[in-house]
Design a protein around this nucleic acid. Structure first.
Lengths: 150, 150
DNA sequence: GTCATTTCGTGCGTATACATACGCTTTTCG
DNA sequence: CGAAAAGCGTATGTATACGCACGAAATGAC
C-alpha cells in the first residue's frame, strides 16, 4: 500500500484495458487503436510534419513513419513535400481519411462513455489534470519549477 | 473539453511516459519495463502457471511466453512441468532472478517517487481506486452490477 | 467409458514502441 | 562564404501486444 507500487500497476492496467477495448472496437473498420490516435491528431492539425505529428501523439518518429506507410496504403493519409523545407514531409488526411475518422469517432463513443461511467463527472477534469501532471513529471520537467536538471 | 477525448489522451500520455522512463531506468540492468512487471508479478506469487502469470500482469499468454523465453536465457526465471497438469508449466524466479529483482526495485524507486510527487499524498489511494475502476469497467464488468452482458 | 468441450502452451503473423545509425538538408556561426 | 551543428526522414533490430490456429492433455456430459 505504501510501497508505491500500486499506482504504476493501476496506471498500466487501465491503459492496457483501454487499448485492448479500442483495438477490438476499431478492428471492424480495419484500423488499430494507435492508428486512430494518429488520425485524430491529424484531424486536429492538418498538414503537420511527421516530426510534429509524432510529438503531438506522443509517439516515436520512426514508429509514426511505419504507421504512415500502412495508412497511406489504405488511402487514409497523404504525404507531400514540405513547401519550404525539403527535408520534411507534410502529412494530411485524405477525404477518405476524414470520412473514416468520423466513423471511428462514433465507433469509439461507447468506450469514452464507459470510461466516464467509471469516474464521477465532477472530478473528470481533475483526473485529466492529474494524469497530465503525471506525464509532465515523468518526462522530466518538474511541475513547480522549470529549473535545473541534473 | 466535453467531447470526452481528453481522458483517453491523458491516460495514454501518462502511461507511455511511465513506460519510457522505466525502460530507460532498467536498461542499465539489461531488462525492460515489461520484464520488470513480469518479475515483480512472479516475486509476489511464485510457481505460477504461464496462464496465471499472464492473467495477473495482465498480459497476453503468447506475449508472456516470448518474454519467458528471453528471461530464461538470462537465467532469471525457471520453467518446470506442472506437478499435476502435464499441459501446464510452472514459472518461478531463480536465485539470480530474485537478486536482480531487488536491484530493479531499488532502481525504480526514483520513478515511483516522481509519480507520487505529481499527486497529493492524501488522494493517491483515490487515484489508484479510480484507475482500477477504469480498468474494470473497460474490461466489461460493470462496477455496479455484475448482471447481463449482450 | 467415450466423446465433445475446454484449457494449456506453442508458433505464426501483424502492428507498436523505441534505440540507433545513416543520408540528406537546413541552420548556425565564425 | 564555408564548415560544423542541428533537424528531418529513413532503415534496421529488439521487445511487446495481441489474434488466431494448432496439438496435447484435462474435464464434462452422457
Amino acid at each position: 500500500m505504501s510501497d508505491k507500487s500500486e499506482l504504476p500497476i493501476a496506471l498500466r492496467a487501465a491503459y492496457l484495458a483501454m487499448h485492448r477495448q479500442s483495438d477490438a472496437q476499431f478492428a471492424k473498420y480495419g484500423v488499430t487503436a494507435d492508428q486512430f490516435v494518429l488520425l485524430a491528431t491529424l484531424s486536429r492539425g492538418d498538414a503537420l510534419t511527421q516530426r510534429e505529428l509524432a510529438r503531438r501523439m506522443p509517439s516515436d518518429p520512426s514508429t509514426v513513419r511505419a504507421m504512415l506507410v500502412l495508412l497511406e496504403k489504405q488511402g487514409l493519409v497523404e504525404r507531400d513535400v514540405h513547401p519550404s523545407d525539403s527535408r520534411a514531409r507534410t502529412v494530411a488526411l485524405t477525404a477518405e481519411g476524414k470520412r473514416k475518422f468520423r466513423q471511428l469517432w462514433n465507433a469509439g463513443e461507447s468506450i469514452r462513455t464507459k470510461m466516464h461511467e467509471a469516474i464521477q463527472p465532477a472530478i473528470v477534469a481533475d483526473v485529466v489534470k492529474l494524469l497530465t501532471q503525471l506525464a509532465t513529471v515523468l518526462n522530466g520537467e518538474n511541475v513547480f519549477n522549470h529549473a535545473q536538471e541534473a
